[in-house]
Structure formats: C-alpha cells, structure tokens
Design a protein around this nucleic acid. Structure first.
Ligand SMILES: [Mn+2]
Ligand SMILES: [Mn+2]
Length: 328
DNA sequence: GTGGTAA
DNA sequence: TTACCACAACGCTCA
DNA sequence: TGAGCG
C-alpha cells in the first residue's frame, strides 16, 4: 500500500485507525503529480455478486485508456450511489465544495434556473477515478464539450425496448443502420449495459442541438414508419406499452448517455459494450458483457469503434441521399 | 461520500 | 473524537 | 403551473 505524501492531518487519522483497516480500506493512487485518495475500498457495491467499490475502481483504472477519449472536455453529470447498486443515489452537476486543484471544471449556464453550474470536465484517468470514488458507478458525459456546449459531437439514437423480446430491439437497431446506410453515413453501436442499444454517428460539433435533434427525430420517424408494429416514438411510456422506443430526445443540451465501457448499476455488473455490427443479431445478450470480461474482450478483439472519429458526418448530404433513395 | 457543526 | 445532518439536476413536453 | 420522462 502506498503511504507516501500524506498530509499531517491524514497522518493523525492513520494513527487512530487500526493498521488493518487503514491498509485495506484506503489508498492513494498516483497519476503523475495527481494523487487520488480512494476510500472505502472494501465496501460492497453489488451485494448479490459480492463486488466491492475497490473492484469497481480497479475496473475503471484498467479501462481508462478506452474511456477517457469519450470524456475529454465533456461536462459530466454525476449520478452518485455511495451505497452501491441498491442506493437510489442522487445527481450532481454543480461542484461548489472543495476539489483537488487538478480537477478541471467549467461553468456552464443553466437556463432553467438561470445560474452557472460548475461541472467537472472529463480530462484523464485521475479525474475519472476521482469521480468513481465519489460513488459514480456509471459515467454520463454530455454529447458536447464545454468549449462548444451547443454543438454535440455525436448524434445518438437510443433504442429502448419496453417489455418486448430483445430481438425486436435488434431489429430496430438494424433498421436504423439501414437508414444511415442509405445516407452513406457511418454509424457505430454499443449495448447500453442496461436494457437497450445506443447508436452513435460522429459529427465533430458541426451542427447545433436543434438541428441534430431534428435530424434524429427524422430518423426515428423513418424507423417507426418501416417497423410500425414493434416500435414507437411516443414520449409517454403509457402510450407505448410493449414497444421498442426509438428515443431521439437524448440529442439535447444537458442530456447524457452512459459512455462506452461505463459500468451500470445492474445485476451482474454489466457494462456498455461497443459492438461490431455483425454481433447485432438474435444471439446478442447484454448480460454477456460485464466488468469481469470486457477488458479481455477489448484486448483480444478489434476495437469495434476504432473508426468512429475518422470522418465527420455530413448530415445535410445524408438527407439528400435519403431523398434520392426515396425517389427511386 | 463528504464537509460542517453540535454534542 | 464522534454523531449526525444537509446536501447534491436539467430540459422539455403535455395535461 | 406541474407532473412526467430519461
Ligand atoms: Mn436507453
Ligand atoms: Mn432512452
């Protein structure tokens, strides 16, 4: 256990605690000059599975290289569950209390109550682990950076099956892919880690939320038109029982989606897993991708999202291709 | 989970 | 020192 | 204006 660089106050604390407890339950993890104090290592976060907070932190440490690119410069909406997966937890966006000086924040104006919110901004592994230590089991970045908060870097189609066979979600995802193919735009898919699927198209902050949301709504409508029996674009859950909800409303300022390789507070410690499109078939099971095996998968298979940032989609050109397709 | 304050 | 408490969202739509 | 949604 690393014991260097403690403040005097911490030293006092160490003396008061039993060596065993101190050794096991608290650690200082160094990322260069940034030292993250990680607490309650042995606290059980998944009671049924017996997974501890320490294991969660180790997971995020091991996957930080894959995750951080999706957090860089993004305001983070923290959902904190310090009591583990059964803790309803709370959201935190504003950070007014003292933070380590190396934790980067950015003030972003909130329209609803006309105040500036001091968001933590994704930066590096140290910042990620700092948030996990606060009780963030899942990581939810904005789609836009604090530098250009009105311009999302992706358009996202969120596939939410509601009490239907998962094969219907697969069908809706493949239909969405088909529509993007007609537009000659590249799209990438991942499991949500919870119930559904997330489809991303890279834009590079070319358009504002208003346009991107309208575009996503248009795509959602096409999916629904072509799969009217199984899908719905109704916002109210009561009006879409037993349907796959094609959710385009995530494409709004301040909305978030669990990032790639984010853990979810669900049974089995599932994670949001980037997939190859050929894996999107009736054999796909979200429960197959967990905190236990995703690292191995990421190391042994080609990164399904390797080319995500290769090209910025031209949505207007895409819509023209769609028009041509419809005329034929 | 943490920081502040009362006991 | 310890115990306890307060506190930590937003944007948007529809009724 | 408030409840509901994610
Ligand atoms: Mn979803
Ligand atoms: Mn959704």
């Amino acid at each position: 256990v690393y014991k260097g660089l403690r403040t005097d106050k911490e030293k006092e604390k160490v003396v008061m605690e039993t060596p065993e407890k101190q050794m096991a339950d608290e650690e200082l993890i160094a990322f260069g000059r940034k030292k993250v104090k990680v607490t309650h290592f042995n606290k059980v976060f998944w009671p049924k599975e017996g997974i501890t907070k320490g294991e969660l932190i180790k997971y995020y440490q091991s996957m930080a290289d894959r995750i951080v690119p999706f957090l860089k410069d993004k305001p983070i909406s923290m959902k904190r569950q310090p009591g583990g997966v059964d803790d309803p937890g709370f959201f935190q966006k504003d950070n007014t209390a003292h933070l380590p000086d190396w934790v980067k924040t950015a003030k972003v104006h909130s329209e609803s109550n006309d105040k500036d919110i001091n968001y933590i901004v994704g930066t590096d592994a140290a910042t990620l682990i700092y948030m996990v230590n606060l009780g963030c089991i899942e990581i939810n970045p904005w789609l836009s950076s604090y530098k250009k908060p009105e311009n999302p870097e992706y358009v996202v189609i969120d596939i939410d099956p509601h009490d239907v066979p998962f094969s219907q979600a697969v069908e809706a995802a493949l239909k969405t892919k088909e529509i993007f193919d007609r537009m000659k735009l590249d799209v990438f898919i991942k499991t949500s880690g919870s119930k559904g699927l997330h489809i991303y198209c890279y834009l590079g902050a070319k358009y504002d939320y208003d346009f991107v949301k309208m575009f996503a709504e248009y795509v959602a409508n096409l999916v629904h038109e072509e799969l009217p029996k199984t899908t719905s674009i109704e916002r109210s859950p009561a009006k879409r029982p037993n349907k796959v909800y094609i959710d385009f409303l995530q494409n709004r300022r301040g909305q978030t989606i669990a990032c790639p390789y984010s853990v979810r507070p669900k049974p089995g410690a599932t994670v949001s897993a980037p997939l190859h499109w050929h894996e999107v078939n009736d054999d796909l099971k979200l429960s197959d991708y967990t905190i236990y095996n995703i690292k191995d998968r990421a190391e042994k298979t080609d990164d399904p999202w390797n080319d995500l940032h290769k090209t910025k989609a031209d949505l207007k050109k895409g819509l023209e291709w769609l028009k041509k397709h419809a005329e034929v």
